[in-house]
């Protein structure tokens, strides 16, 4: 395995289209729920331990070699809001294009063939990590980081926050990111005996509700 592969995969400049998404931050800013650094941090912490944990579990299981199509179904059952399912699949398709060009693999080809409109992004992320010879923990770490990195960057643009302050939020969350990645990886290992029911299913009601509200906006800066 190459540590550099993880940096490439987790880099915001990796051409997978994530920059167009705020992870629910645009809706949170519009409603006034996020308005400063403290509320940004609370948003990121909440998202990390719900959406982020679920994504990390799916990614780790996919990197572990668990059936990606079964994981894609498991992602559906953990995503009751259709707007968020659509976004996850669109992001998955974009990541798939970049990943197949970067780390060609039969696993990626197989998933792309069976999910031509896109699989859930964390599943694609995990299969990509496997193709790049990364570990399940690496995949979980990348998924967990992405769950907060995107919203933090979006908040800087939406609220004109100081980017140093926003980056400090991510640094303060570092230990919790590690914990989430560890527990997601432990759950992924249990899928071998317990199936997908072992994977985290943490949910955040406001992300579901405002995700649907945001999808109905006619004018928006971010796609989600």
């Amino acid at each position: 395995m190459s540590r550099t592969a993880l940096l490439v995969l987790a880099d915001g400049r990796f051409p997978a289209g994530g920059h167009a998404h705020s992870g629910g931050m645009e809706a949170a800013v519009a409603s006034g729920r996020v308005h400063d650094i403290a509320s940004l941090e609370a948003f990121c912490r909440g998202r990390l331990h719900t959406t982020g944990l679920v994504a990390a579990g799916l990614a780790a299981a996919a990197a572990h070699g668990y059936d990606a199509l079964a994981l894609d179904e498991a992602a559906d059952t953990r995503t009751p809001a259709p707007a968020l399912r659509r976004i996850a699949r669109r992001l998955g398709r974009q990541l798939m294009r970049a990943a197949r060009a970067t780390w060609p693999s039969t696993d990626l080809d197989h998933l792309a063939h069976h999910r031509p409109h896109g699989a859930h992004q964390p599943v694609v992320l995990g299969v990509t990590a496997r193709a790049a010879r990364l570990t399940p923990l690496d995949a979980a770490q990348a998924a967990a980081y992405e769950s907060v990195g995107g919203p933090a960057t979006a908040a800087v643009r939406l609220l004109s926050l100081d980017p140093f302050d926003a980056t400090a939020v991510l640094a303060r969350l570092a230990d919790e990111l590690d914990t989430v990645a560890d527990s997601a990886t432990a759950a992924a290992v249990r899928t071998a005996t317990e199936g997908v029911a072992a994977l985290p299913a943490a949910s955040a009601p406001l992300l579901d509700i405002t995700g649907e509200q945001h999808a109905a906006w006619t004018v928006r800066l971010f796609a989600s």
Binding site: S39, A42, C44, R45, G46, H49
Partner: peptide, 20 residues
């Protein structure tokens, strides 16, 4: 459908802007 919720301390940021 598979869902898990955790509210009240020590659940992290359960009363924050992403959760409730």
């Amino acid at each position: 459908l598979d869902q898990h919720t955790a509210y009240g301390r020590p659940a992290p940021a359960w009363d924050g802007p992403a959760v409730l």
